[in-house]
């Protein structure tokens, strides 16, 4: 069985007003299509600068969800494989300025805001909702059984809501989250319903945390439903995930070492992820979910898409056929 490939649009969405116009969307779709990809992952979003991020904005910008799908298809993109949701991001339309799955009072609001993706994903040919599983690391919260049970209750409710629509929930642990080890991830995953809630593994973020993504693939093979395949250029050797606003001060600002870019293309010479080994592991274990190629922090998104397209076509897909 060959893998299902997709590509994350977030590398184009690298500024609050950088990826708004329909022409910009079409250019990204065409660039991906000619580079060999026919599905995209879309970041959820809110407000006038995120017209792909919510159902209501898609309807305003494209007339209807079907209108967006038709425009995607005209460019050669067959599906939106997945949407990516972070509860901590503002949701202006709902007056939410930072929901947390660790707050039981927010669970109902999270379920309700995610209902739209249960409809959106099948309408756009996709089937996976990826969520940031836990908030940033904090001195005030720890990965213990009681805390993870709260999070699991929230995500189980979301998973149960999505399942009748054929949509899987995938919990993603990025490099600045409070979960720092495979055991941390396992603690939460083991409390979630395996029928409706699985793992989304980001190979680069795992490597930045000092984890081995291939080992994680093996350990969680039975729960792995979504992969973000990308390279990393540096490890977080100073533990800067503890910084306040680590997405800004560590990932964007580079931290104390002034790291210019944490993420790279699949074949990056300085990459610390063995992409070929990750790919081989997925093939070997018969992985059936989406493989979403990402290049966060791309200085030239088209270059990233073209280089990643070349590598997937000429190296990884060749290996699949060998």
């Amino acid at each position: 069985m060959t893998l299902r490939w997709s590509y994350a649009l977030n590398q184009w969405n690298n500024g609050h007003d950088r990826f708004v116009l329909r022409e910009a969307h079409a250019n990204a779709f065409k660039t991906l299509a000619i580079s060999g990809f026919d599905a995209v992952e879309i970041p959820c979003g809110s407000g006038r600068w995120e017209p792909l991020g919510r159902k209501d904005w898609i309807e305003k910008f494209y007339g209807s969800v079907a209108g967006l799908r038709a425009d995607m298809a005209a460019c050669g993109i067959k599906a939106a494989s997945s949407f990516l949701f972070n509860p901590a991001e503002p949701i202006f339309e709902e007056g939410a300025y930072g929901l947390s799955v660790l707050n039981p009072a927010d669970h109902g609001r999270i379920v309700n805001t995610l209902r739209q993706y249960a409809e959106l994903l099948p309408a756009l040919g996709g089937d996976t909702l990826v969520v940031r599983a836990l908030p940033n690391w904090s001195e005030k919260a720890s990965v213990d059984l009681a805390t993870m049970q709260v999070a699991a209750d929230g995500w189980n409710a979301v998973g149960a809501m999505l399942a009748p629509h054929g949509v899987k929930l995938a919990l993603n642990f990025d490099c600045v989250t409070m979960a720092r080890t495979g055991d941390d991830m396992a603690l939460l995953l083991d409390l979630c319903d395996p029928e409706t809630v699985g793992l989304s593994l980001d190979t680069a973020d795992a490597a930045i945390m000092g984890l081995d993504p291939v080992a994680l693939m093996g350990r969680f093979a039975g729960r792995l439903v979504h992969v973000q395949l990308k390279n990393a250029l540096e490890r977080d050797t100073l533990g800067e995930y503890r910084l306040p606003f680590p997405d800004k001060f560590m990932l964007a600002g580079g931290g104390a070492r002034k790291v210019a870019r944490w993420y790279g293309e699949l074949e990056s010479e300085a990459g610390i992820v063995d992409i070929a080994a990750c790919h081989a592991a997925l093939v070997a274990q018969g992985y059936a979910g989406w493989v979403v190629v990402e290049s966060d922090q791309s200085p030239v998104p088209a270059t990233s898409a073209m280089l990643n397209g070349w590598f997937v076509k000429n190296r990884l897909k060749h290996a699949e056929l060998a």
Partner: peptide, 8 residues
């Protein structure tokens, strides 16, 4: 940029 022009 050249890469995007070429892809398009």
């Amino acid at each position: 940029n050249y890469p995007e022009s070429t892809a398009l």
